[in-house]
Nucleic acid binder design. Structure first.
Lengths: 218, 218
DNA sequence: AATAAAATTTAGATTAGTCTAAAAATATAA
DNA sequence: TTATATTTTTAGACTAATCTAAATTTTATT
């Protein structure tokens, strides 16, 4: 069995390897997990002993199949619990992350599968992130963001790239939630600030905000 | 915040003080938690520092109000999750204990209250144990067991005093589940083995089994 | 290519929870 | 009521995960 801590490291390495590609760096892991690089080195050695990662000193770390399987299954749990919290317990999308961080570690096959069934086999979590299926297959978003659109284009919001409470909360106030339709009315050339139409209301959003909103053109 | 371990100690002390009364013994705690008496002594000191228990060397330990509140809230979580697992995820009553042992430690007020509401404010868990309300009030069973009945008496099953998988499984096979009606047909004088009628079928059960079945006379 | 900067690893210490073995206190029994 | 058994505590050690500070390696810059 793996400890919560080991699982959190595997999850962090998985997420970083999607961005960074091969050879995830010690510092990047320390950053995500809010720990120190020296602690990361220690844990990496332990995970390497367990054949969860492959590792050569100073060269970064990569997940083995075994490690990736654990990471994906934790992510599957996390996202299923988020769906549960939002759809069944009426939490808002900015409230569920921390709770799901705890629930995800109850990594029992039967519980996960029953929960999946209870929820009707959802494909996406409340932030639009894809839920891996029970064999660990996961469809990645093609990352078209609101900031990629040109004036006049329309799109539906399908996800977010930033999960902070403050960002999610801000989006909700602007009614920029999953499924909402947006139309780009104007783009400021200088800093890419956008005017968009959402539910017949015109709103101004910064590039910082628009580049973290994943959309699908319509 | 309390660690999982601290919470498990508090829960164990709470449960023992219902049985043993004042001054729960070090050995009894070690027994329940499958640890050693020396470890228990260490933890008791820690909990005493935190004002969770009152403790005098060699005289056993008692929960303070603070400690009892934590214990009861963990038990509340545990039993609510058991209801969820059985009623929503279709687990059987002999499968839910271990999962609930993990879920109970996600001790967040809002989650507990939302779960309670989602489940329709249940009063008992799938084993008939009472669920403490959100203020920590808990109704204790008056322990009339099947073994207390005389020939000819009828009763409804309302709970169990023993929660092992094998016992619960055995009961289920005999259809001795919560809500079932039983009628005592015969009692062997020698060892108190009982013949009982359940769902029109006659069954023989040992005293060991009947004294762990909590019933309500009808 | 030499040097400065950044990243990473090592060494040694710390904390929580556990253990064994021995000592001390309490309970039981002749 | 003294001896014996049982229970409980202490002392000292161990493991997992972390940290700081120093050493080492890699990368970037002149």
């Amino acid at each position: 069995m793996n400890s919560f801590t080991e699982e959190n490291y595997l999850k962090a390495i998985y997420k970083l390897s999607l961005k960074e590609g091969q050879g995830v760096s010690t510092n990047a892991i320390a950053d995500i997990l809010k720990t120190k690089p020296s602690s990361v080195t220690d844990m990496i050695k332990k995970l390497a002993d367990k054949k969860m990662v492959s590792y050569q000193k100073y060269q970064g770390v990569n997940l083995t199949k075994k490690g990736r399987d654990v990471a994906v299954s934790i992510i599957r749990n996390h996202r299923l619990w988020e769906v549960f919290l939002v759809e069944k317990l009426n939490f808002k999308w900015d409230e569920v992350h921390d709770l799901a961080e705890e629930l995800e570690h109850i990594n029992t096959h039967k519980l996960t599968e029953r929960l999946d069934e209870f929820l009707g086999f959802p494909k996406f979590d409340p932030h639009g992130d894809p839920i891996p299926d029970k064999d660990g297959n996961i469809v990645q978003h093609k990352d078209i963001t609101l900031s990629d659109l040109s004036t006049g284009e329309k799109a539906v919001i399908v996800g977010v790239k930033e999960h902070s409470k403050s960002y999610l909360n801000y989006l909700e106030q602007l009614q920029l939630v999953l499924g909402a339709e947006v139309e780009v009315k104007d783009i400021v050339e200088f800093d890419a600030t956008m005017s968009v139409l959402v539910n017949k209301k015109q709103t101004i959003i910064s590039n910082q905000a628009s580049k973290n909103l994943i959309v699908k053109k319509i």
